[in-house]
Design a protein around this nucleic acid. Structure first.
Length: 405
RNA sequence: GGGCGGGUUCCAGAGCGGUCAAAUGGGGCAGACUGUAAAUCUGCUGGCGUUAUGCCUUCGGAGGUUCGAAUCCUUCCCCGCCCA
């Protein structure tokens, strides 16, 4: 692997980041790395309780890939210990603590997905139960003594919950500490994550200093907004594009982002260069590029990144066919129903899984969103009169071919 | 330990004896429009339905008062704030 100069590396690695803290230290670490021919140890922590990765995670992973290509050592820390204890966020009351088996299964799917972006075989993979499970209560107290409550309350989400009279469980203060211990344990030179990790990463620096180590440099990547355009992309908000989403789904989800987000997605989801992103921004502003076309281009590029050029082109064609020309998708699942004609349409819709309840089916019919064989149905009591195959359409996106006995 | 305020439908948050399946906002879904699963506007948003001012389940849990309770009482559980 070619060793680039520290300057060159810095230029590459700082492209697209939200923040590097502190920059000089980061640069000094690169210089030292080049001089001594020692790769930097770059840490990424992951939470195996939610193994579904999305393109927001990919922003970080892509940066990590650059580190890897420059010859640095990536260290994944699977947070199995913390996952076994349970709920780190305090938001969801019902996040059950995972068993060891579950965390292992999750960790595996996690790494498989990471492998879509990075070379996992070159990474060092550690489980934090390895060292955290061994801490004694005395160790934990000693750790906790290194941070004050008001320091903890500086963290934005704690601060907000405190002000909003929302509960903060004591153990939540311990999670940032645990993360910091991870950094100490693996002797991280650099830690990378989303901007929401700033506080935790800074705390790790303190713990490293206490432990007599050089504190890690921090590389923060922007948090990508979800497809709703408002909140950060997350699984629980349902506004995410999963790395494992099929091409059609990926394409469609990109098309559903608000127009204001196009350039951001181009840059951080489709990994366009800063120059390319500026060019698109300009074209959108002066009207030489239609937002729809810009979005379709971004969508195609994104799909190509994960599924290849052919799949991307195909997804685009199908999107045009379905939504611009309002035709059928090229593949519709056929569902065999165990019910015999004549049968009320609402029952068929439920049986086909197109709709969760008959009431919902009736509402959709009343609202004009149900089609049988391309005919809009207005009658709540419509029935499928005879056996055979029917193409059902609910709204714009839900299709099924059903066979009625 | 003392005082106070809370727990409501996916979320936030009204309601405080019938007119409550429960205001409003968000989210979601659908329709119209559109070169977009964008924006905007409109409708819907517990289940079942022979579609009837119908039936069933829901307002932290369990009892009770009442012709009738999300609304009142008892008790239990949970959360927040202040004081100690």
């Amino acid at each position: 692997m070619m060793r680039l100069s520290a300057h060159e590396q810095f230029r590459i690695l700082s492209d697209g980041v939200a923040d590097i803290i502190p920059e000089e230290e980061f640069f000094a670490k690169l210089e030292h790395s080049v001089k001594t021919d020692t790769p930097l140890r770059v840490k990424l922590g992951c939470d195996p309780s939610r193994p579904d990765l999305h393109i927001g995670h990919a922003v970080v992973l892509e940066k990590l890939r650059q580190f890897q290509q420059l010859g640095h050592q990536v260290i994944f820390i699977i947070g199995d210990f913390t996952a076994m204890i349970g709920d780190p966020s305090g938001r969801s009351k019902v996040r059950p603590a995972l068993t060891l088996d579950e965390t292992q299964i999750n960790a595996r799917t996690y790494l498989e997905q990471v492998g879509i972006v990075l070379d996992v075989s070159q990474a060092e993979i550690r489980h934090n139960s390895e060292w955290l499970a061994r801490l004694t209560f005395a160790d934990v107290i000693r750790l906790a003594s290194q941070v004050t409550v008001s320091q903890m309350l500086e963290r934005d989400d704690f601060h907000q919950r405190f002000d909003g009279e929302q509960p903060i469980a004591l153990h939540e203060f311990l999670y940032p500490l645990a993360q910091g211990v991870d950094s100490v344990h693996v002797c991280a030179d650099v830690e990378i994550g989303g901007t929401d990790q700033r506080f935790n990463f800074l705390l790790a620096r303190e713990l490293q200093k206490h432990a007599g180590q050089q504190p890690q440099a921090i590389v923060l990547m922007p948090l990508l907004e979800g497809t709703d355009g408002v909140q950060k992309m997350s699984k629980s908000l349902g506004n995410y594009i999963a790395l494992l989403d099929p091409p059609r789904e990926m394409f469609g989800k990109v098309m559903s982002i608000p127009d204001e987000l196009i350039v951001r997605y181009y840059r951080y989801a489709a990994f366009a260069s800063a120059d390319e992103a500026h060019a698109m921004e300009e074209q959108l502003r002066n009207g030489s590029l239609h937002p729809r076309d810009a979005k379709a281009y971004v969508a195609e590029r994104l799909v190509a990144r994960y599924h290849g050029e052919d799949a991307a082109r195909h997804a685009r064609e199908e999107f045009d066919r379905m939504f611009r020309q309002k035709e059928l998708p090229d593949q519709i699942e056929t569902i065999e129903l165990a019910i015999a004609a004549p049968v009320p349409l609402v029952e068929v819709l439920v049986a086909a899984g197109l709709v969760p309840s008959k009431s919902e089916a009736r509402r959709l019919i009343a609202g004009g969103g149900v089609y049988v064989e391309a005919q809009r149905i207005n009658d709540l009591h419509a029935r499928i009169e005879r056996a055979g195959e029917y193409i059902l359409k609910v709204g714009k996106r839900r299709f099924a071919r059903v066979r009625v006995q």
